[in-house]
Write a protein that binds this DNA or RNA. Structure first.
Lengths: 337, 337
DNA sequence: ACGTATAGTCGAAACGCTTCGATGATTACT
DNA sequence: AGTAATCATCGAAGCGTTTCGACTATACGT
């Protein structure tokens, strides 16, 4: 930088001002400075800049260590966040930690990152508490129980659930089951699990349908068994809303073993599930697909906005899933089986 | 840090030495210093450390922007790399760029990262060329065409292919097809595609079997059509080795439509495919599963070793996939169909 | 014509650490 | 006993930026 300054015949600080636009610089000098930078192949040093300005332009993505196992969803998420960060001139570091790790505090206090984006937020999340305590800038994907005054993006589960129920109702289904993630996830306060469970009951009631809502472990075999059990207890079921990709595989197997056909004998909707997975099965699955990339991008944008804005506004956003009709849903049967 | 020094009654530099162990410090003073740090809640500042030492302890994961679409594989990869980095006291930033992006140069010259880990290396990869040109420390997942003198980890495709062919041969299969990724991937020099294609022919010849090797687009429908075409042209096929998860779905559909059963009428092996996907299908798939987490961890380890070692050795490693027998493979039919 | 903004620039002091050379004080080796 | 390492520590000079206060020259309002 000192070389650039010399070559352009200006002071060191002038180069800095030209670079960041912090103070006015005459067009003429700016030209000279840029030319000098070009000729010398000068590139500003990120660390030095960060040290002096106290803003590293690095944000962290707080990524829970695989508990429920990782989905395609998460990956797209990560990459879209990385891209969004880069588009804003930020870097994205990955911090993959258990939610209750004490290591987070250390990492935050290293002063490396300007803010963090928290994924897979639980209704009651120790990471969030820590961040608030340290008054560390953050925003979330998903929401903790009380998310007032915090910045977040999340799937609009109310709307998503409503869309699924409405669609099935339009097809003439009257008895609909909802298959959730596990009870443990529910009790741990995993957002989607809690919110959809609640909304499902409301939507069913409002549409004057019959509904049954149940938890299910995230495994193929659990899905298989759950389906059989459900149909024993509620033989009139004609449609299932499933928010559990692994269980979905088991359900499809159980249906096929029974000699039934999808969607003639039963309709299936996969909730918050990606196209990639939905197209791997036979038949392909009607889904409500989360706007993953948008969530990632938006999450990063909100965080950066928060970091750079002077005012203390904490923006929030909810995005609904999109109904993509494929081959696993159809008109309800007219006749009893 | 100056406060810690004062409180411990030592010089600033002594605190630094105690922290990094760069020079010997008496046990007694070390105690005092650590106590002081504790009391003051002192945490070293990562950026300042990086600036002064010229080693940021940050590495980048060079992640290609989704071309072939993202797999579960990649995600596990990313998280395992992040963890490995953290275990070594490093941070991992994500750089998601097209392989031919000019932006990489900018990023490298920012001086933010000490080294990069390159994913999805093509046989002829501009990123690698750039890294060599700049003499920037890096290691790779996968290999470029000439990988002598470079550090990498990769799947041992030779051994993996051999395992698959051997296993099928043992089951009595005599006519085996190999379904690869697309021809475009092959021509682009995508490593797995090229290496397995080559090795398949060799392995078939060595085992004195009949083999047919074919490319296939990464899509369900392409797999479906490819299967039908293959069986028209080679009615004697009794086993398929498939390295193409999406095509695999199509193949399974085609088999089932034909009224055939897996594995009684045809055996399927999914190559370099994760357990998550293999267990979603009916029947579950026999696979050769890549040691993804190990690859990620090892890749990071090799890179860091390279960064910290004084000697200029560039370690390399090949790991084979593991054969996991599930329900898609069985004895070859004794009789003609 | 006079104080007062404002544009444009400079020099120097941070930012929070590492690292080099120097200095005593021990210990080891002939 | 004398020289040479080694141990333990200190002070100061960076690392490559940003940012603050100061200064000059020009334009502004009255």
């Amino acid at each position: 930088m000192v070389d650039v300054a010399k070559r352009a015949g200006v002071a060191l600080s002038t180069v800095s001002y030209a670079l960041n636009g912090t103070r006015p610089i005459s067009e003429e000098t700016r030209q000279r400075i840029y030319a000098a930078m070009e000729e010398l192949g000068y590139k500003p040093h990120a660390l030095a800049r960060g040290l002096a300005s106290k803003r590293s332009k690095i944000i962290a993505l707080l990524f829970p260590t695989p508990e429920r196992g990782l989905g395609l969803t998460e990956l797209e998420f990560v990459t879209s966040a990385a891209e969004a960060a880069r588009n804003n001139g930020y870097h994205l570091v990955l911090w993959s930690l258990p939610t209750d790790s004490s290591e987070l505090r250390q990492l935050l206090q290293q002063g490396l990152v300007d803010g963090v984006l928290v994924m897979e937020v639980h209704l009651n999340d120790p990471r969030i508490e820590l961040l608030r305590e340290l008054e560390f800038p953050f925003s979330m994907i998903g929401r903790s129980a009380d998310s007032t005054g915090m910045s977040y993006v999340d799937i609009d589960f109310d709307r998503t659930t409503q869309l699924a129920v409405n669609y099935l109702a339009e097809l003439g289904h009257r008895q609909i089951a909802f298959i959730n993630h596990s009870q443990e996830a529910f009790e741990a306060g995993y957002g989607p699990t809690v919110r959809v469970a609640q909304r499902f009951d409301e939507a069913i009631a409002a549409a004057q349908l019959q509904g049954v809502s149940t938890f299910c472990h995230d495994s193929v075999s659990a899905g298989y068994e759950m389906f059989n059990q459900l149909l024993t207890e509620h033989p009139g079921l004609s449609a299932l809303i499933v928010m559990n990709e692994r269980a979905m595989s088991g359900i499809i197997q159980a249906v096929s073993e029974r000699g039934w056909s999808i969607p003639d004998d039963i309709s299936l909707i996969s909730l918050v599930s990606s196209a990639r997975v939905a197209e791997m099965t036979l038949p392909t699955l009607t889904t409500l697909e989360p706007p993953i990339a948008e969530l990632g991008t938006l999450g990063v944008d909100l965080l950066i906005q928060q970091l750079e804005a002077q005012d203390r506004e904490l923006p929030q956003a909810l995005l609904p899933c999109q109904l993509v009709v494929r081959n696993s849903t159809g008109q309800a049967r007219r006749t009893e089986r």
